[in-house]
């Protein structure tokens, strides 16, 4: 059996297009937290976030064969999330705060027309999500990669179990992969 955790987003996308359920599972696990945080900031309602995220992943499966073979899977998923948010807003009452906010924004006339700059800003948002990692996960990760401590030493240092250290590092690695992906393809 393939070890899906070490596959790149591009490899996973390629497998998903062929209908691989494990690749789909790994994509979900790798990106769910960031997408959830992001959507929660935009929508402010966890139930709504759940519906949007669920819908997004169902559609991802349904339309897997039409997925672009991109190296920027987080960018693709965040764009898909944005479309779902827009879709939700398009059904809102005209008087809703979202519509009012868009209206005000448009009237201020300070939007960016350059797509490349917008995309860069979008990448910035994704990075912010990454920086918003739980503090412990970050600490463990830094001690491991920059302090060159073994899992055992970190466990002693932070007074947690070695299993927790391994788990935190694997989580951080996942996220780092996302971060590198973003750096590579947006900057």
């Amino acid at each position: 059996m393939l070890e899906y955790k070490i596959l790149s987003d591009r490899e996973l996308t390629s497998l998903l297009r062929a209908g691989d359920k494990y690749a789909y599972t790994e994509i979900y696990n790798r990106h769910k937290n960031l997408l959830q945080n992001h959507l929660y900031k935009k929508l402010g309602d966890l139930e709504l976030v759940k519906d949007v995220l669920q819908d997004l992943f169902v559609k991802l499966w349904d339309n897997k064969s039409e997925m672009p073979l991109t190296d920027n899977l987080p960018g693709y998923l965040f764009s898909a999330a944005r479309n779902r948010v827009f879709n939700h807003l398009s059904h809102q009452q005209v008087a809703s705060k979202y519509i009012s906010s868009i209206q005000t924004f448009i009237n201020e006339d300070n939007y960016i027309t350059d797509l490349v700059i917008r995309e860069k800003e979008f990448a910035q948002i994704i990075r912010q999500e990454i920086d918003a990692l739980p503090a412990k996960m970050k600490e463990v990760f830094v001690l491991s990669r920059e302090g060159h401590l073994s899992h055992e030493e970190i466990a002693k240092h932070l007074n947690i179990s070695p299993q927790t250290v391994s788990k935190q590092i694997s989580n951080a690695l996942k996220i780092l992969r996302v971060r590198l992906g973003v750096f590579f393809y947006f900057l």
């Binding site: 769910k32 937290n33 959830q36 945080n37 929660y40 900031k41 935009k42 929508l43 402010g44 309602d45 966890l46 976030v49 759940k50 995220l53 944005r82 948010v85 827009f86 979202y98 906010s101 868009i102 924004f105 448009i106 300070n110 939007y111 960016i112 027309t113 350059d114 797509l115 917008r118 800003e121 979008f122 948002i125 739980p134």
Partner: peptide, 28 residues
């Protein structure tokens, strides 16, 4: 397109409650 996407970049819900990790994980 520029108008809508720029709005989206800037828009953020203000004053929503901070959620516990457990609650978030439960949703996922």
């Amino acid at each position: 397109r520029g108008m809508l996407e720029t709005w989206y970049l800037k828009y953020e819900e203000a004053g929503f409650p901070e959620l516990s990790q457990e609650k978030k994980d439960g949703q996922l």
